[in-house]
């Protein structure tokens, strides 16, 4: 069972993640991502939307698979900027790890 934190998306704004709620989960980003890896980055964005903070922290290492190539951002129909969102999540996770 995973606990959800409804304020997670708001907390992430301090790390530059402010478009997560614009995403409507169409999956274009996961389809075009060269990683072909477990619905990345859509899965991570969904976790942010539902406030699954623990899921993000458990799967944190996967965030660094992202190549920051920008294909997802270029093709996102909602301009939700998935690439920058992943970058913001890296900042958040790194800050949590360093704090710990």
């Amino acid at each position: 069972m995973a606990l959800v934190d409804p304020d997670f998306a708001a907390e992430l704004k301090a790390y530059g993640v402010d478009t997560a709620l614009d995403c409507f989960n169409c999956g274009t980003c996961a389809a075009i991502c060269p990683l072909n890896f477990e619905h990345f980055p859509r899965k991570m964005i969904r976790y942010v939307q539902v406030g699954a903070k623990q899921k993000i922290l458990q799967q944190a290492q996967d965030l660094w698979r992202c190549l920051h190539c920008g294909l997802c951002t270029r093709t996102c129909p909602r301009q939700a900027n998935p690439g920058e969102l992943i970058l913001g999540l890296r900042r958040y996770v790194l800050a949590q790890f360093r704090r710990a």
Partner: peptide, 21 residues
């Protein structure tokens, strides 16, 4: 604008992923 990545950014954290891309 739709170029494919060469895999370079993965080099530091996963050379294996870099090779794959």
């Amino acid at each position: 604008e739709f170029t494919s990545c060469c895999g370079g950014p993965a080099e530091s954290v996963s050379p294996a992923l870099n090779r794959e891309i």
